[in-house]
Computed example of a mutant assay.
Amino acid sequence: MTNILLKVTGLKVAYGGIQAVKGVDFEVREGELVSLIGSNGAGKTTTMKAITGTLPINEGDIEYLGKSIRGQGPWDLVKQGLAMVPEGRGVFTRMTIVENLQMGAYIRNDKADILADIDKVFTIFPRLKERRDQLAGTMSGGEQQMLAMGRALMSR
């Protein structure tokens, strides 16, 4: 039996008086790929923001690696290995690709392994390696999204 990495139970999230998520339940097990699918306004992004601590939840619970993470902020969750890469990229436009990746590793204490992890990101996204010294703001939207994913991976 595979381990449950993420378990969401009875999740309810509201914006003021508007109930955006009305009781979501799902599990993500080790080795699985899970997608949230729905129309615009269905609550996909709201669910992800609640899981990653950027939105408070009204009801329900979220367990990550067997422990409740309800009420924890994103700064705590990223240290535990849980990060979100939203649409819209959100890269540091006036920093190079390498500097953006280094920012992803900011919370880490194993500075010696950071260069090796940058190389791993470059293996996943070879286009970033080609442009390693380029300012992130001068890249295409797709390249910036690759960089945002790479930066999240750098946090481990």
Rank of each mutant, 00 (worst) to 15 (best):
D117G: 12
E30L: 11
A116H: 10
R89W: 13
R156A: 09
D113F: 15
K129Q: 11
M1T: 13
L128Y: 04
R127E: 15
K111H: 13
R70F: 10
E63Y: 15
E87W: 02
I97L: 04
R132M: 10
G150Q: 02
L147V: 08
R127C: 14
Y106F: 11
G41Q: 03
M146L: 05
R94K: 15
G142A: 06
I69T: 10
E87F: 03
A83T: 15
G38E: 01
L147N: 00
K79A: 07
G17M: 06
A50G: 11
Q134G: 10
V28Q: 01
G104D: 05
E130A: 08
M139E: 00
V28R: 00
K49T: 13
Q72D: 12
V121L: 01
L36H: 05
L115H: 15
I124H: 11
I118C: 06
A42W: 02
Q19A: 14
E130C: 05
I107A: 13
E63G: 08
L115K: 15
I114W: 05
L5T: 00
L65G: 10
E63L: 12
A136R: 00
L11M: 04
D25M: 04
R89P: 12
A152C: 15
N58P: 14
R70M: 09
A152N: 14
G38K: 01
G88E: 07
